[in-house]
Each structure stands twice: as C-alpha cells, then as structure tokens.
Nucleic acid binder design. Structure first.
Length: 939
RNA sequence: AGGCGCGUAGCUCAGUUGGUUAGAGCGCUACCUUGACACGGUAGAGGUCGUUGGUUCGAAUCCAAUCGUGCCUACCA
C-alpha cells in the first residue's frame, strides 16, 4: 500500500489532477438563494480583476493566496463562502497590446482598420487569450466560484455601466466641458490624475524679457517651458508685489510673436495671487491652454484660451516657423531665437517634478479639451462618512488616514478616454442644435430640438469606472426592472472583505466606496423579518473590511519590473517547487505593513516541509497496513475523523504523548484562528508549520513508534495509538489545507483509501476546519511532555559532549526530587522513551543531584549520563567557565533588580517572585558548576 | 513641500497592552545512510535590537533628536 505513494513529494504529479477535480465537481459554486433569503454566516468577496490581457504576476499570487486561505478557512468553518472571479477589459493596456500585435504583423494598423474592425480584433484577441488568467488561477488552487465569473465588458456588466452613467447624468453628477486635463501625446487620450506619475528631473528655468508695449520698460518672466509662450495670453504678478505694481494694467509685447504667428501680439499684465514673488522673477507668463494653474488664472480673469499644440503635442500654429515641430524640438528653436533676439536673459538649472504617463512613460501635456467629468464631492462626502463611522474598516489601520486625506482633497474625476476599447459613453450629439442627449438606448431624435441626425459620442469610459461598480454589478445590479431587487444582491451585498494592494487604493478601492455608497443607498434589502427595508449607508458600503497587503519584491528587496529584468513569474516558481510551497512561502511572509522579499531559499524550505508531510502520510499508510496485517483494523467513524462532527473525546487509555498531541492540536487550532482573524497569515502559517513538523513529526511520530507494537495480540495501547495517530493527522491536514490545498487533498484522500473507508466529503475543502474545542485539552500532559522533551534533549546533548558513539547505549541517573513524579507513573515507559530517543539503557533514580561533566541541571530535573571516558579537561574547563559566565551575568542582572527598592515596591508580585525563583535556581546551578570546576583534575 | 513606513543573528523576517536570560526559517559547524522522510535526523555556534539622550523600578517595545533607507500624495511657473 505504501508503494502507492512515491518516496519524495512530486507536486507535478498531483496538482493538475486536483485543480481539475475542484473545478469539474463545482465544489466552490454557490447557487443563488431565493429572493430575500440570506445565509446566516457568510464570507463574500470579489477578486480584484486582473487585466484580461495579462499574465499573473507575483502580486496576484500573493493576493490570491491570501484570499484563498481566507475563503477556504471560512468555508471550512461552515460559512457560505463566495469568491467571485473575473477580469478587467483594461482599456488602455489592452488597446496598446493589440496595436502592438497589429504592428508586428505588418498589416493595417488601428486607424487603417477603423473603429469597428479594430474593436472586433480586440474581441478576437480576448477570445483567444483571455482565458489564460483563469487557467493560471486554477493552477494556484484559487477556490473561486466560476459560475459567477465576470468580464467587465460582457453584456450584463455593460448594461449596468450604461445604467450607472445615465443615472449620474440625470442626477447632475456628470458634466461635460472643455477643461485642462492630463494628456498622453502618444496615446492621444486624456488620463486621470492618478494615471500620472511624478518624477524629479533636472530641467532649466529660462528667464525671458517681455518688453512693455508703450516702450517704457520691460519685465522678465521665468518659465521651464518656453515653447508654451506661443500660447501666452497675459503676464501675471502678485498684487502685493511692490516691484511690479505700476505694470499692472499695461500690456507687454510677446517676444517672437511675429515669428510665431505673424502679427506682434500684445498681452495684458494682470495681478493674481497665484504669482509667487519668491519664485523666479515674481512675474509669470499665463498660458491657459497648456497649464492647469494658468487655466485657473485664465478663468478668473476671463482670458482667452489659446491652444498651440495638437493631440500629439506638436506645435500647431498657422504661419509659424515652429508649426509641426515636436514640443521639445520647438523648445530648442525658440530658446535659440530668443537668444538671438536678446530676449533671453538667463538660464538656470532647476530640478522639478514632471508628470509622466503611467502607461507610456511620455511626459504628460496638460491640454485643453472637451471631456466628461464626475462631480466627485457629493460622492466623496458619503464615502468619507462611511469610513468615519466605521462602516468600513481598514487593516492595517493607517491606510484609513491615507484614504481620508486623499478623499478630502479630491478633484473631479475625468472619466472620458479617447480610446476605442471600452464602454462607449451613451451620449449622442445633435448635428442640428449641438446639444447632447444621454440615454440608455440609442435615441431616434435629439431630446433638445427633436432633430434626427445624431452621432454617438466617440469617447469611452475610464476602465476604473466599470470596475468601481463591481461589488454590486457582479450580483446583478440594476436588476430586471432597474429596481436592484436581485436575489444575489439582497443576499450577498455588501461583501465582507476586500483584499488588495495599496497601489490601487485610490484607483479602485476609493471609487468602489464612493460608487457603492451612492448607488446602493436606499436600495431595498431584506429586513430579516421577511420584508424589505431601504439600505442605510451602513448597508450601502461595498465591503465591510479592507485588507491591504504589501508588495512582493525580489530577494534583494528590489521592486520587480520588466526593465530591471528581475520579474519572477509565479508559474515558473510553482513549476519548480510546487504551488503549495510557493503559497506557503508567501503566506508565511505576509505580515501586514511590510513588503515581501520573495526568496527562493525560503520556498525551497517550504517544499521540504511539503515533502515532510508527504512522508508522514507514507508513515501512516505503513502503520495502518502493518496494523491491518496483524489484525488491528482502524475502525473509525469517517464522519468524526473527517471532522464533520465536532467530537472532543479523548480515546480511553490514551497514553501521555497522545494526550499531549491532542492538547497541542487544540492550542494550535486556537492560535491559527486568532491569527487569521487578524490577517496574520504569517503567524498562522508558522503555527501550523511548527506544529506539524516540530511537534507532530519530530516528537509524536517518533514516540508513537514505541507504541505500535502489533506483534502483541490485543495491545490496547497500540490500538488507541493507531486510532489517535490517524485522527490527529487527519486534523492536521485539515488545519493545513487552506495553506497547502493540493498536498493536503492528496494525502487526505490517500489516508481514507488506506483505512478502507470512503471519505466523509468530496474534498478536504468541504470538511470542518479543526477548532480548539474539537480536541481534548489536558494541561498536565503538556507539562509532563515538556519535562520529558527537555530530559531527552539534555541526555542527547551530554552524549555529544562526551563523544559517546551514536549506537552505544548508556545508563543515566536522574534526581527526580524537583519533578512531580506523578507525571511519570510508568517508569518503564520513561525508560522506553529515553531508550528510543536518547539510547538510554537504564534509568536509576538517585538521592542527591548528580554533578560534573556528565551531568546537566535545569529547573525541572538533574540528570547524569554514566559513562567512562577520557575527559578532555581543557575543553570541559572552557565549557564550565562559559557556563559560569552566563550564570553570573544572569545572576547579576537579577540581583541588581532585586536590590532595587523601586522594583520590589512597584513591579507586580508575580514578576518579583518569578525573578527570585529564577535567581535561586541560577545560584544553585552556578554552585554546581563551580563544584564541577573545582573537581576537575589539575593539568 | 507635506504624509507614511522601515532599520533586531551572515541573509529574509517575527517579537502582542513596556516585565524574568530576545525567537523562527535559510545559511554555517560537527556527527549520523536508524524501515516515513538526506527535500532527512541529532547537537551546536551566532545578536550590547542603527546612534544619542529622555521617561520608568524595568525599554527591542514609549518620547525626542540624529543618521541611513523605502514609499505615497501634491497645481509651484
């Protein structure tokens, strides 16, 4: 039977099988409940949708590992657990990717194809490659509900997006207008503030002289972008700036305007608070169409807006020498021309931060253009309130502050993009009156003038608009009649948790909160009494909790990036080490707040852990088989062993180590639950690791080998032990299964097969999660085992020091005064344990504590190994001196404190007592060491 | 310019509301092919907790300063 399991754990042999099994058996799919019925306890959450174009990266894997651990954990605790998977159409990213592919093919490009043909191509592309993410997720073991999978552009969600847009428009929360926006000249589209990354760069500050039109003087302005002067419409100074008071109201002649546009242009000098007397010369040129601040000044002073660039940031100025030049080329030329004309006064080095497009890396060009915006303040107000009142909790908590600060300084959200791939804005422009008609379905006539010649808006919506609606759109919002009365929504909204990275806190988390609080407020929900009630803000929030995890970096703590070439592909590492090992590594490193330096060395260690468990499973199979051959059949209630019944009964006649392992199991179950409740994946993982390897394998399995003597007929201890071994292992597998789902599934199924009992559930994932109260907790057994373990370790340690050959057995002397003898009523057993674990031949109880080179003392016992040997006097003296130094240090520290009146008076009694006791023990040990030192023969 | 975080063993990290002599994994040293496992076992070595000062009976933990380091937000021409 044991030959069925290979000697070493081979993840590749089992992972695919179970991944497929879980999906095909639809184990994690949850049906829609009848309208108005909600599960009593639930754990609902949605997957932050990866880009449909993408491959999973390490960040996804961390995210999904954490979510899966939580989902499996909650599910095994009997809650209705739904994890909704999906992908995002990712407007810009996808469009770029397909364009690149078109370029590679050498055929017609995007513009040649035209809008319809191009989007058709993107859909084909999505059909072909869009499933990759899902396949990768299956390899990670993500226990998602595939029946609820979404794509942000599918028909259902598209309808919801349209509905949301129209409602916002009708509510006056969407407006359209010509404003200055962040413009990506490569993609030729507007992007939101968040899609701009700032970078410090060394630039120049150019000082340029503008002569007064009346010839009475001149004023020098400072700018980092001289090329924009072609669009200047004024020069501003601070009204309080004495130097320039007399200039205000006059006009200056724009240098180069003759070159640039033909006529020499005169522009006014104005006073505006924006001008900072401290910066540059105190005078600033005003270019409303190419700078957001200047735009604001322009509005205040009703200045004209002069655009001088096209959508690719090339100068567009009829008759100008610079017409058609790239903005940076034009800058060079303009500086040269200014120098030649004598208008250039000075060039200073100037470090300033510039905005780059997150997507293309191109310098953002502020551009005046017609865009669609969401009036954000009313949405933000509710979102702030929801978090303020504690309806949404953040972990780690400090993100609440980050969220709050951003929310309180929020700007209107530019939601239009000049792209083709995305949700097309449901607005139609009238050729007749020029007005806009916003509607759910294509209108036949203009809602303003009734004319029939309508053109649909060409812009699409920002990707984050649709993803911001997900928490309710995935559950069927807005419903059939638009009343949002869907069974899913009623049962599953708000979701319980959102797990995500801080990088999309504003992009996505904040938007979901704003849109959720807006759209779900007042929507009917079950009132728990069979009726309906309107949602308040508390139930309008998209999720109750947000857990923000860290970034996964490489082993050198560098951010992974394609340009650095240090990107670790999760699929590569799971192929190499197995999914479970990688999952476990991420989990064991995932403590809130700090980034994860992903190390292969650690992953290797966790593969070894998987292998350890694998071999423990083989050991069990072997014992079960041995038992069967000797007529010891494991007769177990599969329901109970499989944990579907919470049974806390200690098997009758359970020996010490069995009582101990059950007690430890119980304690560890408690620890794991506590840790996972606080999102301490690291603590939980380490607790299971320590238990499984350090206690179950290192001690329990070793001790149990003594008990499983099947040669004796009717050996009750053997029977009880075998049964307990199986029970504990079964529970330990269940405990580990959220972290290592593949290995535990295989081992668990194999365990039942070898017992010859059918499994109590289709999958380990559907069994009960072990909980503290499921197992008997015998505290005495813990004390006794601690002493036993220490005793064994001490003897082993002495043996090494005395260089006793491994195979040789020795007698030991134990001074048992200190130990409660009652812990070890069975002296034969003690000898068995010591014999097995430390090659002890005989135990003699002695009257006085033994001392010397062959003895060891702790607070709990004194033990000596009886063995004739040549003592290495020098080495022994060195060891004793070192020990003495340690005792002295501890003793001094203790005495210093005990001699301190303040300590004795103020410290809690148990601390003082503990210290006294410890000092006394140390003193005794020190005396013994001193005696041993004195007893050493002089060289 | 504001805000947040980090600095503990060679490496990667834990360290709960301040409480007895600071932990884990990997790596390192020595020994061991013992019928679950060499992806293993056993026993070890290794840290004045970045620095300085303060609060306290008591500080890795709280406060201040300082050095180093990472990140986020922002309309400074």
């Amino acid at each position: 039977m044991s030959s069925e399991l290979p000697k070493a754990y081979e993840p590749s042999l089992i992972e695919e099988k179970w991944a497929k099994f879980w999906v095909e058996q639809r184990l994690f799919e949850v049906p829609t409940p009848p309208l108005g019925e909600a599960p009593r306890k639930h754990f609902i959450h949605i997957l932050p949708p990866p880009n449909v174009t993408g491959r999973l990266h390490m960040g996804h894997m961390l995210n999904q590992t954490e979510m899966d651990i939580l989902t499996r954990w909650h599910r095994m605790r009997g809650e209705t657990a739904i994890w909704v998977p999906g992908t995002d159409h990712a407007g810009i990213a996808t469009q770029m990717m397909v364009e690149r592919q078109l370029a590679a093919e050498g055929g017609p490009g995007r513009t040649e194809l035209g809008r319809e043909a191009f989007t058709e191509r993107v859909w084909q592309w999505k059909q072909k490659y869009g499933g990759a993410i899902g396949e990768q997720m299956q390899r990670l073991g993500a226990s998602v509900d595939w029946s609820r999978e979404y794509f942000t552009m599918d028909e259902r969600l598209s309808r919801a997006v349209k509905e949301a847009f129209v409602r916002l428009w009708e509510q006056g929360l969407i407006y359209r207008g010509a404003y200055i926006v962040n413009w990506d000249p490569v993609l030729a589209t507007a992007v939101s503030d968040l899609e701009v990354v700032h970078e410090e760069r060394a630039g120049k500050l150019y000082h340029i002289r503008y002569p007064l039109a009346d010839g009475t003087g001149s004023i020098v302005i400072a700018t980092t972008r001289p090329e924009t002067m072609l669009g200047d419409v004024a020069v501003a100074v601070n009204p309080a700036d004495e130097r320039y008071k007399q200039f205000v109201g006059k006009t200056v002649v724009l240098p180069l305007s003759a070159v640039a546009g033909g006529q020499a242009r005169e522009i006014p000098m104005i006073a505006d608070e924006w001008a900072n007397p401290e910066f540059g010369t105190g005078a600033v040129k005003v270019t409303p169409a190419h700078d957001p601040n200047d735009f604001a000044i322009g509005q205040r002073h009703k200045l004209p807006q002069l655009s001088i660039m096209d959508e690719h940031a090339h100068i567009r100025l009829e008759g100008s020498a610079y017409d058609g030049q790239d903005r940076f080329v034009a800058r060079e030329h303009i500086v040269e021309d200014l120098r030649a004309s004598g208008a250039l006064v000075d060039i200073q080095d100037h470090v300033h931060s510039i905005g780059l497009s997150q997507r293309t890396g191109e310098v953002i060009e502020p551009r005046l253009s017609m865009q669609w915006f969401i009036k954000i303040q009313p949405l933000a107000d509710k979102a702030i309130e929801a978090v303020d009142k504690g309806y949404i909790r953040f972990t780690p908590e400090n993100y609440r502050k980050t969220y709050d600060e951003w929310m309180r300084n929020i700007h209107d959200w530019c939601i239009s993009r000049q792209l083709w791939w995305g949700h097309r804005i449901p607005a139609w422009h009238c050729a007749g009156c020029g007005e806009v008609t916003v509607a759910r379905e294509a209108p036949n006539a203009c809602s303003h003038c009734g004319a029939g010649e309508l053109m649909q808006e060409t812009d699409v919506l920002d990707t984050w608009f649709s993803s911001g609606l997900l928490p309710f759109t995935v559950f069927g919002w807005p419903g059939e009649g638009g009343d949002a009365l869907t069974a899913d929504l009623a049962a599953f909204y708000p979701t319980d948790l959102l797990v995500t990275g801080f990088d999309i806190l504003f992009f996505w988390v904040a938007r979901m909160i704003m849109l959720g609080c807006h759209f779900m407020l007042d929507v009917p929900m079950p009132d728990g009494k069979g009726g309906l009630r309107a949602r308040t803000l508390k139930d309008a929030v998209p999720f109750r909790e947000v857990y923000i995890h860290a970034l996964v970096r490489d082993a050198e703590r560098q951010k992974m990036s394609k340009t650095k070439g240090n990107v670790i592909d999760p699929i590569d590492v799971i192929t190499k080490y197995g999914t479970d090992a990688v999952r476990f590594t991420l989990a064991s490193q995932a403590s809130p707040g700090t980034d994860i330096a992903f190390s292969e060395a650690r992953t290797e260690g966790n593969r070894a852990f998987a292998n350890k468990i694998w071999n423990a499973a083989r050991f069990l199979q072997m014992q079960i088989e041995r038992g069967r051959e000797a007529g010891y059949k494991v007769t177990l209630d599969a329901q109970a062993v499989g944990g579907n019944v919470a049974a806390a009964v200690l098997p009758e006649g359970a020996p010490l180590e069995t009582r101990w392992i059950f007690a430890r199991l119980s304690a560890v179950c408690g620890e794991v639950a506590r840790s996972l409740n606080g999102y301490r994946f690291d603590e939980a993982a380490n607790a299971v690791y320590q238990f499984f390897w350090g206690e179950f394998c290192d001690w329990y399995v070793e001790l149990v080998k003594l008990r499983l003597d099947f040669a004796v007929a009717k050996n009750d201890t053997a029977a009880v032990t075998l049964e307990s071994l199986v029970k504990v292992f079964d529970a330990a597998l269940r405990l580990l299964s959220p972290f290592m789902p593949f290995l535990t599934e295989e081992s668990w199924q194999a365990l039942y097969a070898s017992i010859g009992v059918s499994v109590p559930a289709k999958s380990i994932a559907l069994t009960r999660y072990p909980q503290a109260e499921d197992f008997p907790f015998d505290e005495d057994s813990i004390w006794a085992m601690e002493i036993l373990k220490e005793l064994i370790v001490s003897i082993r340690s002495l043996r090494k020091e005395m260089s006793i050959p491994e195979k040789e057995t020795v007698p030991v002397q134990i001074f048992f005064e200190r130990v409660a003898r009652s812990y070890f009523p069975d002296e034969a057993l003690l000898l068995d344990f010591l014999g097995r674990s430390a090659r002890v031949a005989e135990v003699r109880y002695v009257e006085t504590p033994p001392m010397g080179a062959n003895a060891r003392s702790t607070g709990a016992f004194d033990v000596a190994v009886v063995y004739e040997r040549q003592i290495d006097v020098a080495a022994e003296r060195e060891r004793l001196l070192k020990e003495l130094a340690k005792f002295d240090k501890g003793l001094q520290a203790a005495e210093r404190q005990l001699g301190n009146d303040g300590f004795v008076a103020k410290a809690p009694a148990h601390i003082v007592e503990g210290l006294k006791k410890q000092a006394a023990e140390t003193r005794a040990l020190k005396e013994k060491a001193e005696a041993a030192l004195a007893a050493l023969p002089v060289e």
